[in-house]
Amino acid sequence: MIKLLRNYLFWTYERGSFHYDVMVTLILLFLFVGPRFIDFKDKPVETVALQSSEVLVKAAGSNEEGNLFVYQIRAEDMHGAATDSDRQAAILRVIEPISGGVTLERYEAVHDAQGKTIAYNAWVLR
């Protein structure tokens, strides 16, 4: 048994042998199944469009009414929208030339580390 474990550890089996196939299968299982059961505590980095003419679009699923997308719009593109209705109108002004007629479901501000609003995430039904 110790010899078997040592051979697995030092990868001494020939390619195409049963033990080689077992090792490759275990590695592939770890790569593809491991992230579902192991919490690596990684978090995605918030990305904001680099240029004012860019809008970041992510698919957010679908429901019975249509497809849901998240549009990330830079705060500078909102052009001084102070009230809630002004912000909704500004968001639609930016999004509609890109994707046509849409329905704004909700939106929320994206803040940087200092708490300054740098962008808005808008959930849009298309």
Rank of each mutant, 00 (worst) to 15 (best):
T47E: 15
Q72S: 15
E96L: 10
L50W: 02
A89M: 12
I38V: 06
D86Y: 05
G80D: 03
V55A: 02
V22T: 04
L68R: 04
H19R: 01
L4I: 09
G61N: 03
T103A: 08
Y13P: 00
E76F: 00
K116E: 14
Y13T: 00
I2W: 15
L31I: 15
K41P: 01
D39W: 01
S17C: 03
N63C: 12
I2A: 14
D21F: 01
A59Y: 14
S99R: 05
S62I: 06
I2C: 12
R126Y: 05
H19A: 10
L26F: 07
A49C: 13
I95Q: 01
D112M: 04
Y8W: 03
K41D: 15
R36C: 15
F69W: 09
V48D: 07
R6Y: 12
W123A: 11
E46W: 09
R126S: 08
F40G: 14
N121M: 12
T83A: 11
R106H: 12
V33S: 06
P35A: 07
M1V: 04
T83D: 11
F18C: 07
A59T: 11
A59V: 08
Q114K: 10
F32A: 08
Q88V: 02
H19G: 00
A81H: 07
I27D: 02
V24E: 04
H111Y: 15
W11I: 01
L104F: 07
M78L: 13
V55W: 01
H111K: 15
L50A: 06
T25H: 02
S52C: 04
L9D: 02
F69R: 09
Y71C: 05
K58T: 12
Y107L: 04
L68P: 01
T83W: 04
L56D: 13
A119K: 04
I27M: 13
E105M: 11
A49K: 09
I118A: 00
Q114M: 10
K3C: 04
M23Y: 03
I73A: 03
L50M: 10
I73P: 05
M1Q: 06
H79C: 07
Q88W: 09
F30G: 11
R15L: 03
A122N: 01
V57Q: 06
L56E: 14
D86G: 08
L9A: 11
I27T: 11
N7D: 15
S17R: 02
N121Y: 05
A109F: 15
G34V: 08
R74F: 01
V57I: 12
T83C: 06
G115L: 06
Q72Y: 14
I2N: 14
N7Y: 05
G100T: 01
F32D: 03
V24T: 07
D84E: 14
I95R: 00
T47I: 10
P44K: 09
R106C: 05
K41M: 02
E46Y: 09
D86R: 09
D39Y: 02
